[in-house]
Protein backbone atom coordinates (compact mmCIF):
# COMPACT_ATOMS: atom_id res chain seq x y z
CA UNK A 1 0.00 0.00 0.00
CA UNK A 2 1.13 3.56 -0.68
CA UNK A 3 2.82 5.29 2.21
CA UNK A 4 1.01 8.43 3.27
CA UNK A 5 2.72 11.65 4.18
CA UNK A 6 1.50 14.27 6.61
CA UNK A 7 0.59 17.79 5.51
CA UNK A 8 0.74 20.43 8.21
CA UNK A 9 -1.90 23.13 8.24
CA UNK A 10 -1.09 24.65 11.62
CA UNK A 11 0.96 23.58 14.62
CA UNK A 12 -0.61 23.58 18.05
CA UNK A 13 -0.08 22.01 21.46
CA UNK A 14 -2.59 19.76 23.19
CA UNK A 15 -3.78 20.44 26.74
CA UNK A 16 -2.69 17.56 29.01
CA UNK A 17 -5.72 18.13 31.25
CA UNK A 18 -8.11 16.63 28.71
CA UNK A 19 -8.14 13.20 27.14
CA UNK A 20 -5.11 10.87 27.14
CA UNK A 21 -3.07 8.81 24.72
CA UNK A 22 -4.60 5.36 24.02
CA UNK A 23 -1.57 3.68 25.65
CA UNK A 24 -2.47 5.31 28.99
CA UNK A 25 -6.00 3.88 29.16
CA UNK A 26 -6.62 1.57 32.09
CA UNK A 27 -8.08 -1.89 31.49
CA UNK A 28 -11.67 -0.77 32.18
CA UNK A 29 -11.26 1.99 29.61
CA UNK A 30 -9.73 -0.44 27.15
CA UNK A 31 -12.75 -2.73 27.47
CA UNK A 32 -15.00 0.30 26.93
CA UNK A 33 -13.53 1.02 23.48
CA UNK A 34 -11.54 -2.10 22.69
CA UNK A 35 -10.96 -4.31 19.70
CA UNK A 36 -9.89 -7.97 19.73
CA UNK A 37 -8.13 -9.45 16.72
CA UNK A 38 -9.40 -12.98 17.21
CA UNK A 39 -7.97 -16.08 15.62
CA UNK A 40 -11.37 -17.60 15.03
CA UNK A 41 -11.46 -21.37 15.50
CA UNK A 42 -12.74 -23.39 12.55
CA UNK A 43 -16.18 -24.81 13.28
CA UNK A 44 -18.27 -22.43 15.38
CA UNK A 45 -19.75 -19.47 13.53
CA UNK A 46 -18.54 -15.91 14.01
CA UNK A 47 -21.81 -15.23 15.76
CA UNK A 48 -21.32 -18.09 18.23
CA UNK A 49 -17.75 -17.09 19.00
CA UNK A 50 -18.85 -13.50 19.62
CA UNK A 51 -21.57 -14.72 21.97
CA UNK A 52 -18.97 -16.71 23.96
CA UNK A 53 -16.78 -13.67 24.41
CA UNK A 54 -19.79 -11.72 25.61
CA UNK A 55 -20.20 -14.31 28.36
CA UNK A 56 -16.55 -13.95 29.39
CA UNK A 57 -16.01 -10.19 29.29
CA UNK A 58 -18.19 -7.69 31.12
CA UNK A 59 -19.40 -5.89 28.00
CA UNK A 60 -22.79 -4.40 27.23
CA UNK A 61 -22.27 -4.43 23.48
CA UNK A 62 -20.15 -6.60 21.22
CA UNK A 63 -19.98 -7.12 17.48
CA UNK A 64 -17.80 -8.83 14.90
CA UNK A 65 -16.67 -7.79 11.46
CA UNK A 66 -16.08 -11.03 9.81
CA UNK A 67 -18.04 -13.70 8.17
CA UNK A 68 -16.02 -15.44 5.51
CA UNK A 69 -19.10 -17.14 4.17
CA UNK A 70 -22.36 -15.31 3.67
CA UNK A 71 -24.90 -16.14 6.39
Amino acid sequence: MKKREILIRTEEETDPRYGKPPSERNVEELIETGVINLDKPVGPSSHEVTAWIKRILPVKKIAHAGTLEPP
Binding site: E32, I36, V59, A63, A65
Partner: peptide, 17 residues
Amino acid sequence: MPITLNKAVKLIPVLLK
Protein backbone atom coordinates in the same frame (compact mmCIF):
# COMPACT_ATOMS: atom_id res chain seq x y z
CA MET B 1 -11.65 -11.74 12.89
CA PRO B 2 -12.10 -8.25 14.38
CA ILE B 3 -14.35 -8.14 17.45
CA THR B 4 -15.38 -4.76 18.78
CA LEU B 5 -16.45 -4.00 22.35
CA ASN B 6 -18.92 -1.45 23.68
CA LYS B 7 -18.34 1.97 22.06
CA ALA B 8 -16.06 0.44 19.42
CA VAL B 9 -19.09 -1.45 18.04
CA LYS B 10 -19.73 1.68 15.97
CA LEU B 11 -16.63 0.88 13.93
CA ILE B 12 -18.20 -2.22 12.39
CA PRO B 13 -19.59 -0.56 9.23
CA VAL B 14 -16.14 0.97 8.69
CA LEU B 15 -14.27 -2.30 9.22
CA LEU B 16 -16.61 -4.15 6.85
CA LYS B 17 -15.61 -1.81 4.04
